[in-house]
Design a protein around this nucleic acid. Structure first.
Lengths: 248, 248
DNA sequence: CGGGGGGTTGATCTCCTTCAATCAACGTGG
DNA sequence: CCACGTTGATTGAAGGAGATCAACCCCCCG
């Protein structure tokens, strides 16, 4: 594992890149000060496990930088990713003692953490946190249900196209949406991780990516660098009717 | 559509069968009185649509009696059920204008409804409702993720066994768990609805049910009445390691 | 130079879908 | 009361999408 640059540490909540999207989004300055006094940062290298399903979990937290995955594994080794954690996403469930899923860093990862008890106490006293958590959980539930449609009914090609569209859209929203021009991004996941996310094998993922490339839906440089010359064309391959719901 | 008995109407919240499991579970008597003053009941026949995805939705509510389904349909007709709504489950999302899914009654259905605006106002003032809704949404998210594993990684036989186990467990919890004796229940879903839930075709559902019957895992009387002679045997067929997590 | 992680591609197999025939139960109208 | 249509379900035969098994490539790094 390569030694990477030390991650940016945002001591000051007001400078935090996820200030307005994370659980703390609705907090007033006094509530924020309270959170700030008890928060602490943790970092993980790419590939490192944040927590194993079933392990005691005495903290909750938000992804600040990097990407993590939430996954379930059956005893014979079949695994299914059940969530992709991006900056501002929340990890952990207030009121639960042990982790329900494996959480793994796929890139260098920085998390803003709170010990569980103090966080629960604070939730009881500052309604803004619970309100925001409810909003976020409802959004997660919507994404999970969208993913159920993908897993249950879409073809391999549609699954790949859907994943690419989601990543492309997220990236575009970060880069302030240069709509209508070609979209360019790097895949943050290995073929195997994509397979686990999509309910496929890594070979099928590879073949379908090759097929989309052959058909000109995407352009590949190397294995990870993707250009989408025509985003609507990609959307047409996802099987979805409209432009996807825009739940971001 | 046959004329059915008029559904039980619980004018009094304190007599309500879902009083301690629904959104109102944590409410004190004064909060309950407030809810009681604005609630109204709606009933639907089996097969009737409660609301179509995309339609304007000016109410939210709880399932009191009966079963409903939440489903998504692609333009070419492929459909995926994304939720099974049982008594006490909540329908609708505060803060959202239109329905995100099709909601359909699969049995005679009674719902306890609130107009959306008053409910949202009340949520802002009585934290107990929001708290309970957060708990319920987190539980829903867990079920959705469990279902993602099923849809993405389980075989047809495991899918059927898992569905039967879930229905059996739910039924057992209602009948006060005569554990260790044979479990008996009626399937609340058609083969087609099961297929939509499990991401299969109805033919595959029928074949796998026949196979489980042939292997003695279940006993069928008619098409809907199921006896499970050995529940652990059934659990062994689900592909899950333990006894399933007990999220009820 | 060797080794390993990540990726691609080919050949074969299989589980599930698709298409289709058949059946039982039920209600309805002549 | 029976013929008829309908709905839900079962079963068979054939085909295909994706899994499995396996070889090989590329590139980085020790």
């Amino acid at each position: 594992m390569a030694v990477t640059d030390p991650p940016t540490i945002h001591v000051n909540c007001s400078d935090c890149p996820i200030r307005h999207r994370a659980v703390c989004a609705h907090c007033e300055s006094d509530e924020l000060a309270l959170l700030e006094s008890v928060k602490y940062y943790r970092t993980f290298d790419a590939g490192q496990t944040v927590i194993w399903s079933g392990d005691r979990m005495d903290f909750v937290g938000s992804v600040v930088e990097g990407i993590a995955t939430l996954s379930q594994t059956m005893e014979d080794g079949r695994t299914q990713m059940v969530g992709l954690l991006l900056p501002s996403d929340f990890v952990g469930r207030p009121g639960r003692e042990t982790a329900a899923y494996d959480v793994t860093a796929t890139t260098q990862l920085t998390m803003c953490c709170f010990r569980k008890r103090p966080f629960e106490d604070m939730m009881a006293r500052t309604p803004h946190i619970g309100q925001r958590l409810l909003e976020m959980t409802l959004d997660e539930l919507d994404s999970a249900r969208e993913w159920m449609l993908l897993l249950g009914r879409k073809t391999a090609r549609e699954k790949i196209a859907s994943l690419l569209a989601i990543i492309a859209r997220r990236d575009a929203s970060l880069r302030l949406a240069t709509t209508r021009s070609a979209i360019v991004f790097d895949l943050p996941l290995t073929r195997e991780a994509m397979a686990d996310y999509l309910g496929l094998t890594l070979e099928t993922v590879s073949r379908q990516i090759s097929a989309l490339k052959r058909d000109g839906v995407i352009v590949l440089e190397g294995k990870r660098h993707v250009t989408v010359p025509d985003f609507d064309r990609l959307l047409g391959e996802t099987g979805d009717d409209n432009d996807g719901g825009m739940l971001v």
